[in-house]
């Protein structure tokens, strides 16, 4: 056989056919287990041999994790549902177009065919020091290479840093936060439900995880309540290229109008912190007011209050400010 580059180191492959079996495997293998969904994040790690799990638990055969169903109080999207299916789903398009837009902005057609909603939410950060195997805080080491004096940190965070300055890469996360979604997390013998914004955790809480998921946990589904069905929305993702790239900054917002004023609003941004950021203070400020230019400007300023750029990413401050302004202007 020919010599093959970048071959993935061998691992034990487990292919459960049910969630129960998957949870039992995750419980059995604990920290040695690796959950495989669409493989976009996984194979990048494995080919670089930076992460070398002993046991890979492949969810592709767990049919109950794929699909979108009506719960009577909204919809539930299985974690293994491919992003292209989320984009094409008639109910998502009709009622939760904000999620459709966000999912449509993920990477490329091929990656949306393979990548899953659960994977998009659970993927690891793309800080290249960390992804290249540097022994940083997030990797269990004792420094942050991305905030060192000569570091290249154009894509890193302006908010929420705590030793680590990496950002959350998920495009669907801010949309799901704006839609008031809840994540269903199971482990052997128990289930927990998390508000979307609480599913993501920052380095101050745990520097080695991006989400609440611990060894043994499995994100099984995302529930989107009716609350924001059909709401007016705004989504924008700014990236270096017209396709493929992760967001430099993205914004997702849902609005309920009360005549000419904003009756209710939920706004989230991503690409600015190690977790997607819900802008509660901006929401409180804009509710009850007409979305005029003055309000949009004020909202943008409030959004970036406290931002601390790194050496090469101060452009993210006006970018985030302007995206929030645009979101407010969109309902004028």
């Amino acid at each position: 056989m020919a010599i093959i580059r970048d071959m993935i180191p061998a691992f034990d492959l487990f292919q459960p056919a049910s969630v129960e079996d998957a949870l039992a495997l995750l419980a059995e293998h604990g920290e040695d287990a690796w959950v495989l969904a669409g493989g976009l994040d996984t194979f990048d790690w494995l080919k670089d041999r930076i992460k070398r799990p002993k046991a890979v638990v492949d969810l592709s055969g767990v049919e109950e994790l794929t699909g979108i169903r009506d719960t009577g109080a909204g919809i539930e999207i299985g974690a293994m549902t491919p992003l292209s299916r989320v984009v094409g789903d008639p109910r998502v398009r009709a009622d939760f177009a904000l999620l459709r837009e966000a999912a449509e902005h993920v990477a490329t057609p091929q990656i949306r065919n393979q990548g899953t909603l659960g994977g998009n939410l659970s993927q690891d950060t793309r800080c290249w020091y960390y992804r290249s195997g540097w022994p940083c805080y997030r990797a269990g080491g004792n420094t942050c290479y991305a905030s060192a004096p000569k570091a290249m940190n154009r894509e890193h965070c302006i908010l929420g840093r705590s030793r680590c300055v990496a950002v959350s890469p998920s495009d669907t996360a801010p949309a799901l936060i704006a839609l008031g979604a809840r994540m269903v997390v199971r482990r052997a013998g128990s289930e927990s439900i998390h508000e979307a914004q609480d599913f993501f955790i920052g380095p101050a809480t745990d520097i080695q995880r991006m989400t609440v998921l611990r060894a043994g946990d499995l994100l099984t589904a995302v529930r989107i309540p009716e609350d924001w069905a059909g709401a007016r929305h705004y989504y924008e993702k700014v990236r270096d290229r017209g396709s493929w790239d992760f967001a430099l900054v993205s914004v997702a917002a849902a609005f309920r109008m009360d005549g000419d004023t904003i009756g209710d609003a939920r706004i989230a941004v991503n690409g600015v912190a190690p977790f997607p950021v819900r802008l509660d203070s901006v929401e409180r400020m804009v509710v009850g007011h007409a979305p005029d230019e003055a309000l949009a400007t004020e909202a943008g300023e409030l959004a970036v209050a406290g931002a601390r750029p790194l050496r090469h990413n101060d452009y993210k401050v006006p970018l985030m400010r302007n995206l929030v302004r645009r979101a407010i202007r969109s309902v004028a």
Partner: peptide, 23 residues
């Protein structure tokens, strides 16, 4: 070989996918 270029695109069940990231 990492999902950054698309050169390995093949069609699986009618959908284009990246063969380098398909087990």
């Amino acid at each position: 070989d990492k999902g950054d270029c698309g050169a390995c695109t093949v069609i699986v069940d009618g959908e284009p996918v990246l063969a380098c990231l398909t087990p």
